[in-house]
């Protein structure tokens, strides 16, 4: 069997093994989106306007949650040595780990996003575009977040540091996704926001493994 497939299976098994896979991130997501009406008031008109944006922003925050352990555990127990010495190379290892992160938490969160948006009163017609943005954006969040996780290897309080490093890098996809949602809600329509988000996700998937691998090598050295 291809070693990268073996690694992907192991990463998914470990994601479920360490604290219930996507459940904590989903609970966080549900919590944040439930707090919004309490903070801004329950008027349906007001909520319906901000619902897709809130669902989208909360998704970006929830994607940060389980990043801390993405490389940290393998780094501490020596498994990263074994992975770094493997034939596929550290770049491929990092890409597989980020992909597993997306499969384990990004995908479930993406399916929760339209539900949250509808619960907050967004029109039903906008649900598909929320799901699409969440799927594509979640992939970008996992890969960019992986860079933050690799850069903070070996530091104490890595989780907070990851958020500080990664949140500014989340700005472009959040803007593009927000634009896509606004276009979907407007009468004129348009797909430029979604296309930009797809482009940004493709760039993140292609480039961030290089940065992740360099950061891991630096931590191992």
């Amino acid at each position: 069997m291809n070693p990268l497939l073996v690694l992907l299976r192991r990463e998914l098994a470990l994601a479920w093994g360490r604290g219930g896979g996507p459940l904590p991130a989903l609970a966080f997501y549900a919590g944040v989106t439930t707090l919004v009406p309490l903070a801004v008031g329950p008027e349906p008109d007001r909520l319906a306007v901000i619902a897709p944006g809130i669902a989208w922003l909360a998704l970006a925050l929830a994607s940060l949650l389980s990043l801390e352990r993405l490389f940290e555990r393998d780094f501490e127990d020596g498994a990263l040595d074994l992975l770094a010495l493997g034939e596929p190379g550290l770049e491929a290892v990092c890409a597989v780990k980020a992909l597993a992160q997306w499969l384990a938490t990004g995908l479930p969160l993406a399916f929760a996003a339209p539900i949250a948006a509808l619960m907050l009163g967004a029109p039903v017609a906008i649900a598909p575009i929320v799901l699409l943005c969440a799927l594509v954006g979640g992939l970008a969040f996992a890969f960019v977040g992986g860079m933050g996780a690799a850069l903070t290897l070996g530091s104490r309080r890595g989780g907070v540091l990851i958020a500080v490093i990664v949140l500014p890098l989340f700005a472009p996809p959040v803007i593009f996704g927000g634009g896509a949602l606004a276009q979907a809600a407007s009468v004129t329509g348009g797909t430029s926001g979604l296309l930009l988000l797809c482009g940004w996700a493709a760039a993140a998937v292609a480039l961030s493994p290089l940065a992740m691998a360099a950061a891991c090598r630096n931590a191992l050295d």
Binding site: P3, V6, A13, G17, D77
Partner: peptide, 25 residues
């Protein structure tokens, strides 16, 4: 390379860990 840190995950069975390390290598 087998160092102080063996890379074995405490929460997985020895079989799973050995099978992974072996097929990775």
């Amino acid at each position: 390379l087998i160092g102080h840190h063996d890379g074995l995950k405490g929460g997985r069975t020895a079989r799973e860990e050995l099978a992974f390390a072996a097929s990775w290598s």
